[in-house]
Nucleic acid binder design. Sequence first.
DNA 1: CAGAAATAATTCATAAATGAAATATTAAAA
DNA 2: TTTTAATATTTCATTTATGAATTATTTCTG
Lengths: 174, 174
Amino acid sequence: MISDDHNPGMPPDLHGDSFSEVEHRIEVTRRRLPGYPLDHVRLARLITHIQKLQTELCNEVLKPFELNFVTYTALMMMYGSEDQTSTPSELSSATGEKPTNVTRICDELLRKGLIERYPSTSDRRRVVLRLTAQGERLVEQYQPKIWEAMDQLYSKLSKAELQQVTSLLRRTLA
Amino acid sequence: MISDDHNPGMPPDLHGDSFSEVEHRIEVTRRRLPGYPLDHVRLARLITHIQKLQTELCNEVLKPFELNFVTYTALMMMYGSEDQTSTPSELSSATGEKPTNVTRICDELLRKGLIERYPSTSDRRRVVLRLTAQGERLVEQYQPKIWEAMDQLYSKLSKAELQQVTSLLRRTLA
DNA sequence: CAGAAATAATTCATAAATGAAATATTAAAA
DNA sequence: TTTTAATATTTCATTTATGAATTATTTCTG
């Protein structure tokens, strides 16, 4: 029966994947708005969609470690620092979090004993952050689980395909 | 002079684009962790990076309209509904926002007169949401600015390239 | 059909993220 | 060198997002 106040946007059998409903709405919008840049918008929405998905997958895996995607990212960026130290501003640009949020995140990691924080001697405005031994152990401990989560999404693409997507997407930043 | 407590991760002339520093940290991590799935992680981080960038670009453009990326997304998903109505749960899955947040967002859009909200007659658990004339006008008003923002990122790729990236990325959701 | 399970939306307490402003220090300009 | 401007970090108030629990209704199952 067709309701007079609301009907589902798509017949249920046309729901391919979790993105189909979004794509359908984009297509409807395209019909309504002349000049609508469908290809741009679809990719933009797809990126948002995948980003949310991978964040959720990671969060799931990280829960037992009492971490979330943001704290995990901060830890990984520190782990990947050439000299094993980072400043809050570097961490801000490496994680995409605002400096003010980095302060809070580091407060938390500090409280958990995963990092240490001390004033820089060479530039006294700065602060130096470093993983503790415990922090490094934790990073190494959750790796296998995170790799599994990544696999769930990205193992569907071959190495060549991954590199191609990556290189194309990178061009948007040029 | 090389500091004894902290040095920048990369020589400044190697900073290609905003993602280079992240990539560098991923590569350092790869050296430290045998078996590290570099291709997966790099793409995952790149997606996060671009997502943040496009969100910021949109927020910038939307500020004069007193909207942000999330409220804008909600409006667009409503605008793209086949019969011009949506329920909160549909909106939740179309926007990726939790139902509880959809309630808050709709409260706000309602308060601004951009949408209307009434109970469904066919299923009395549901609520029906619909853009008002004012809401539609606003959507149409900000389009050109949003398209410009999209262009800043995605016009660097050809139509064929956009479609290729999209189709590859889509495979991750299969 | 009755009872149980599932779905839809919301409220409320809490957590997470942001912007504006403050403080300290360094770098640049006059 | 003095002053000015820029950078780095933090604090605090506010906004935004989440999870747990609640209420109402519908669907499923025996």
